[in-house]
């Protein structure tokens, strides 16, 4: 038993973080509520694809790099920490659906970053009504739940763009339509579990980033002649942020490793990871803005972008009530 990342896993963190800092730096994007142009520079997205980011956890036999979910977690944690734009999550999930459904060419074009995928979340269990992220440039849409996952053609769906809270992610709402392009059951590949864990990894990265932003500001901002972080009211908020961030990432690691090993109750572990990481990202966002005071309310610093992103990801794949109801069914 060892729940700390291996040297190779740490290496993924370092590589991804330095690429993001150079090519996709997180900025406050002052007063740009909806980023113009494509969500992510297609050239950069393809560079990421060439680095294997979209196929890290796909088996080599299916055209992937052949790592486990534990390695993919290290990548997605950095994407969350760095507020990376782009449909990385639906690309990874969509490629798996295509690959495990036997559509090797489609899978190859997704992992190459040529075919973009959007992420759909059903508004209710079994409903065709969906909320969609990364919708603008995508041609396919992936939707998944505990039973299985499917790809739809975006052109067959009825979607209306919305003005999103997080303007760095194009969002739409509407209904699924047409036949599935590809589908797999969760027995063949638990796509939903992977989605929960990777989304949780992004939220854990965001929770960590907010902890670090809050602590850094508390250490330099002075009032009454001393850094505000010397006051327990601030220090204790920071401590609570640290505990939530540690818990979120620890559970993501456990859930990823459990899923890789096919351990007992690995679905529950993933559900708990998503629930806890959503909460950690949300609560750390509230604490981080509060520590910053008025400046945290403006678009001139980063905290608000984490608030927007955490809010958005908490509505992807499964919301809080659905996650909790999975853990304690009524009957």
């Amino acid at each position: 038993m060892d729940l700390m990342p291996s040297a190779e896993q740490d290496e993924i963190t370092t590589t991804v973080a330095s690429f993001l800092a150079a090519r996709l730096p997180a900025t406050a994007h002052a007063s740009v509520f909806v980023t113009p142009g494509p969500e992510i520079d297609p050239v950069v997205f393809r560079e990421c694809a060439e680095l294997g980011w979209l196929s890290l956890g796909l088996p080599e036999a299916l055209g992937g790099v052949g790592y486990g979910l534990a390695e993919e977690v290290m990548l997605f944690r950095e994407l969350g920490r760095g507020l990376a734009p782009g449909g990385f999550l639906p690309a990874v999930l969509g490629a798996r659906v295509a690959a495990f459904a036997g559509q090797r060419e489609l899978a190859a074009s997704i992992v190459a970053g040529e075919v973009l995928v959007a992420l759909a979340t059903r508004d209710r269990v079994g409903a065709d009504d969906v909320s969609v992220l990364h919708a603008a440039e995508a041609t396919l849409l992936v939707v998944c739940d505990a039973a299985g996952a499917a790809l739809y053609s975006l052109a067959d769906c009825t979607l209306t763009p919305i003005d999103p809270v997080d303007g760095s992610i194009r969002a739409a709402r509407g209904a699924l339509g047409g036949a599935t392009v590809a589908s797999v059951s969760s027995e063949i590949d638990p796509v939903f579990v992977r989605g929960l864990v990777l989304c949780a990894a992004m939220q854990a990265g965001s929770a960590e980033a907010q902890r670090d932003l809050g602590v850094a500001y508390a250490g330099v901002r002075e009032q009454f002649g001393k850094p505000i972080g010397a006051n327990q009211a601030i220090k204790h908020r920071c401590a609570d942020m640290a505990v939530r961030a540690e818990g979120a990432f620890a559970q993501v690691c456990y859930a990823a490793t459990a899923a890789d090993g096919g351990a007992d109750r690995f679905v529950d572990e993933a559900v708990i990871a998503k629930y806890f990481a959503d909460e950690a990202a949300r609560l750390n966002g509230e604490a981080c803005v509060q520590i910053h005071g008025a400046i945290g309310f403006t678009t001139e610093t980063l905290p608000h972008r984490h608030v927007w992103r955490a809010h958005t990801l908490a509505r992807a794949l499964a919301v809080r009530a659905a996650l909790l109801d999975h853990l304690v069914p009524r009957t």
């Binding site: 540690e246 818990g247 620890a250 572990e269 559900v271 806890f276």
Partner: peptide, 10 residues
């Protein structure tokens, strides 16, 4: 249940 499970992971 979720919180105690997370504590196990920590």
């Amino acid at each position: 249940k979720a919180e105690i499970t997370v504590l196990r992971s920590i």
